[in-house]
Design a protein around this nucleic acid. Sequence first.
DNA 1: CGAGCCATGTAAAGAGTTACATGATTGC
DNA 2: GCAATCATGTAACTCTTTACATGGCTCG
Lengths: 183, 183
Amino acid sequence: MSRVEYDGAMSLRHAALGLLTFGPASGYDLLQTFNGSLANVWPATQSQLYGELGKLAEAGLVTVAEEGARRRKEYALTDAGLAELRHWLVDVEPTVVRRSDVLLRVFFLGIVEPEQAEEFLRERERDAIERQAELRVTEKEIASDTVDLAVYGRLALEWGLRFTEMQREWAVWAQQEVAKVRG
Amino acid sequence: MSRVEYDGAMSLRHAALGLLTFGPASGYDLLQTFNGSLANVWPATQSQLYGELGKLAEAGLVTVAEEGARRRKEYALTDAGLAELRHWLVDVEPTVVRRSDVLLRVFFLGIVEPEQAEEFLRERERDAIERQAELRVTEKEIASDTVDLAVYGRLALEWGLRFTEMQREWAVWAQQEVAKVRG
DNA sequence: CGAGCCATGTAAAGAGTTACATGATTGC
DNA sequence: GCAATCATGTAACTCTTTACATGGCTCG
């Protein structure tokens, strides 16, 4: 039960704490969720997750509730962990900054041929369509999920649907803009 | 002129190369742009940028074209640098993944009171409005900019305007959804 | 008994942030 | 001369990714 260091960044910690509110789970269990419904929101690697769970246990935010077969450790949220999670949810301002690989390329699209710029934007349109289709699949999975991310997870999903739609419309518009310059 | 290592990630490198297509510039000059028109797309710290310029020079993608007063080094893009930039723009698939601090919180909004969840969403709505206002300011700056990020930078800006609008509308919708559950 | 999944861990390197440190030049 | 701005650099730490490594259990 050492001191809890927390400065505002670092959300893998809170993602793990959050998932444990749905009940005790092992690192392996959590990893399935990170690769599943959380993949589009906060992906994490196995390596990172196991390390983080160790730190979380050391900090007293989770405890090893049970040790099972195959070295399995089942983690459970402590009162301190739940308090930290609530604190993060309510009091800590989310980071606004977002890096966008795509947008950075858009800035420099002037150095390639307009045809290539248009092709780039056409690919963004296709990406958006594809990702939206994937979200529709997730939509059905979530509905029939045992772990109840359904309630508020539905809000996150709707965000994704609106986001991909916006991206698709923008890509179509941007192609027209480039066509204007080219033509 | 050592070998260029490149595996698909890492875009600060390309941001720097891209900015140098508008003409030679010092680390300090580039930093102004990173803090300005690029701040919402690919922020970078002074520390990181100077380090990267050193590596870029070592790799032969840029050269020190001129050394001025106050230790100023003016960097210029080499042919190899421009080639790498074009390659990145046309051949390298942009990363799709995106971490969202906000969306992660949405997933776990069920553990706080519905009133707090609504307040959280109301803040997102305010954020979106505020950020859109900032983009409107940038819009006018870009129009009267000497460095010509204007042409395709305009496309990136429009993306931002559409994005913030989408976010605002989603936040309004989400508040209503929470109100339904609460009521 | 072996394939496949369950389950955890470490090591190394890349990418990003914050803080510290230094010095030159310009303009009032 | 001194404050502000120009200008570069280093050190330490955190977060993230990729690769490597190991072993247990179950079922056909």
